[in-house]
């Protein structure tokens, strides 16, 4: 479903390839696999830079329906916090720079996943948006902070509150993405950037990555705590499971 492929000159590819489920995020499978790969990258000193890719049409569709409707909703009946938000944070522990090459669309937690990387390249033709509120519950996985970091407060808030999916070209000038390019140019651009990064010493790359992510890790510690409280309340709304089912678009 997600696999690490070693390329040339220290450029590694982290490939999400679950066609059947449009790279939906799942707590037990998908996010656990990411954790294992993070550990692997820490130990493999030949790795210099990682390019995170999805499918041509879909980068990631966010939480899968079973995860949202059953696991999360039922979990919050008894517990305050869910570990899935903390698992996403392990991405920040990848010790080297990560480039998200989003050729396809990314929605909900699938878009937030890209925000845990260091460089983002999106496609003009693909759509990006936050589906959480469409399904009646508040954004999670650090989205409430990372969306504001990526889009600024006003556009970030609009995207979270409306749940609209905007085409990459509509986001030009409204976000902090590094590049928004025609889909065919997304991966070549990622490789081009990766080659420049891979020339640098691993130790210096690790130092830069670790120090640059300090503020983000501090911010996420606070945000994930608040989001857990918000989920505890939002998932307690009457009929929440039906609202999720009626509005889940995958």
């Amino acid at each position: 479903m997600i696999r690490l492929e070693k390329g040339e000159d220290g450029i590694y590819f982290l490939k999400m390839e679950d066609h059947a489920h449009k790279n939906a995020l799942d707590n037990t499978i998908f996010l656990d696999q990411l954790s294992k790969i993070t550990t692997e990258l820490k130990a493999d000193l030949a790795a210099k830079v990682v390019i995170l890719t999805g499918l041509k049409d879909v980068f990631s569709s966010g939480g899968n329906i079973d995860f949202l409707e059953k696991q999360l909703a039922e979990h919050y009946e008894n517990y305050i916090e869910h570990e899935y938000a903390n698992k996403m944070k392990t991405l920040l522990n990848i010790p080297i720079p990560v480039i998200a090459a989003m050729e396809g669309s990314a929605t909900g937690g699938g878009l937030t996943l890209a925000f845990y990387t260091d460089i983002i390249i999106a496609a003009e033709e693909s759509r990006y948006g936050f589906s959480f509120m469409n399904m009646g519950f508040t954004p999670g996985m650090g989205t409430t902070a990372l969306a504001v970091e990526a889009f600024g407060y006003y556009t970030g808030f609009e995207m979270m509150a409306t749940g609209n999916y905007k085409k990459g070209r509509e986001l030009k000038g409204k976000c902090q993405f590094n590049y928004i390019l025609p889909k065919a140019e997304v991966l070549p651009k990622a490789i081009d950037i990766a080659q420049a990064i891979a020339e640098k010493p691993r130790t210096s790359l690790e130092l830069l990555k670790k120090s640059s992510s300090i503020k983000r890790r501090q911010m996420l510690e606070e945000t994930s705590t608040i989001e857990a409280f918000m989920h505890k309340i939002a998932f307690s709304q009457p009929d929440i499971k039906n609202i999720i089912e009626d509005n889940y678009t995958g």
């Binding site: 049409d57 669309s105 929605t107 693909s126 759509r127 948006g129 609209n164 999916y165 678009t249 995958g250």
Partner: peptide, 11 residues
């Protein structure tokens, strides 16, 4: 139309 284009049209 992509699946998300269709979602946008319908919404």
């Amino acid at each position: 139309a992509s699946s998300l284009d269709i979602v946008s049209v319908v919404s």
